[in-house]
Nucleic acid binder design. Structure first.
Lengths: 126, 126
DNA sequence: CCTTGATATGATGAATTCATCAATCCATCA
DNA sequence: TGATGGATTGATGAATTCATCATATCAAGG
C-alpha cells in the first residue's frame, strides 16, 4: 500500500521507513546523498556497491516504489536521484542517534568493569 | 541482528528504520514524542491507541529491541520513553517529506486536469 | 493464599520482504 | 538484422514480520 492522500499519516510514515529498512538500500541512498546534486548513474551505484545488477535493480525499484528516489533514462543510461532533501537528513539523524547508542554502550561497559573502556568500534563503514 | 559495535553503520541504520516500519509503532512513538518528557505509561498508550494489550506489548517489545524506547517499571505500572531526541526529529522530517509528496500529488493532479486542485487529504491523522 | 489489575511472553498461521537466478527490455552499433 | 552493453522485470524458495490468541509474569490487596 503506497503513500496516498487517503492514508493516515502514520501509515505513510511507516511505509517510508519500510523503504529504508534494508542495508543495501541505505548504502545506495548514502551514495546518492554524497553525489553531486544527489544524482548518480546505475553503473556508478553498481560499481560502488558491488551488488549484482539484478539485485541492485530490485532495490532501486523498491526505492522508486516508496518514492525515495526518482530516475531518468538518457539513452542506455539511467540516473537516480534522491527524491527529497529530507532523505539525507533522515540518514544524518540516524547517524547521530546511533553514535549516541555507541556512547551509551561504552558507558555501560565502563560501569560494568569500572575500567576505562578501550575503543569498541573499529570497523564501522558508514 | 541488533545494533552492535561490530556491524557496519548502514546495517545499524537499516535496523533502526525496521523498528519504525509499522504504523502502530509510529503512532506509539508520536504519542511519546508529544508527551511530557517524552514519557508515557503503557496504560495511557493502551487507551490512546485502542490496541489490545498484548498487541501493544508486542510492538513495545520491538521498539525496545531496536533501542528506540526505554522502559521503567514502578510497582504495577510501566512507563516508556523515547530513547533519543533523534527519534522525534526523524518523525518530524518524515512529515515534511511526506507533505511535500502530497504537494507533488496536488501539482500533478492540477497539471493533469488544468484546474485548481481541490483539497485532497481530509482524513490524515498525523 | 487467592484475586485482581497491569503487562509481557509464547505460539502459530498469514503476509510480506529478502535473496537470487532467469528472462526480458531498451538503446546503440556494425 | 544480430550482437553487445545497460538496466529492468519475473519467478521462486527462504527468511522475516505481522496479526492474533493463549498463557505467563509481576505487583498489590484482602
Amino acid at each position: 500500500m503506497l503513500p496516498s492522500a487517503q492514508a493516515p499519516l502514520y501509515e505513510i510514515k511507516a511505509n517510508l521507513f519500510k523503504g529504508l529498512a534494508h542495508p543495501a538500500r541505505i548504502r545506495i541512498l548514502e551514495l546518492l546523498a554524497a553525489a553531486p546534486q544527489e544524482t548518480a548513474a546505475v553503473s556508478y551505484l553498481l560499481a560502488e556497491t558491488g551488488l549484482e545488477a539484478s539485485h541492485l535493480s530490485q532495490h532501486l525499484a523498491t526505492l522508486r516504489k516508496h518514492k525515495v528516489v526518482t530516475s531518468v533514462r538518457t539513452a542506455n543510461a539511467v540516473t537516480y536521484r534522491l527524491a527529497h532533501p529530507g532523505i539525507s537528513q533522515l540518514l544524518a539523524i540516524a547517524r547521530t542517534f546511533l553514535l549516541d547508542n555507541l556512547a551509551d554502550s561504552n558507558e555501560q561497559l565502563r560501569l560494568a568493569q569500572q575500567l576505562p573502556a578501550g575503543h569498541l568500534a573499529g570497523g564501522a563503514a558508514s
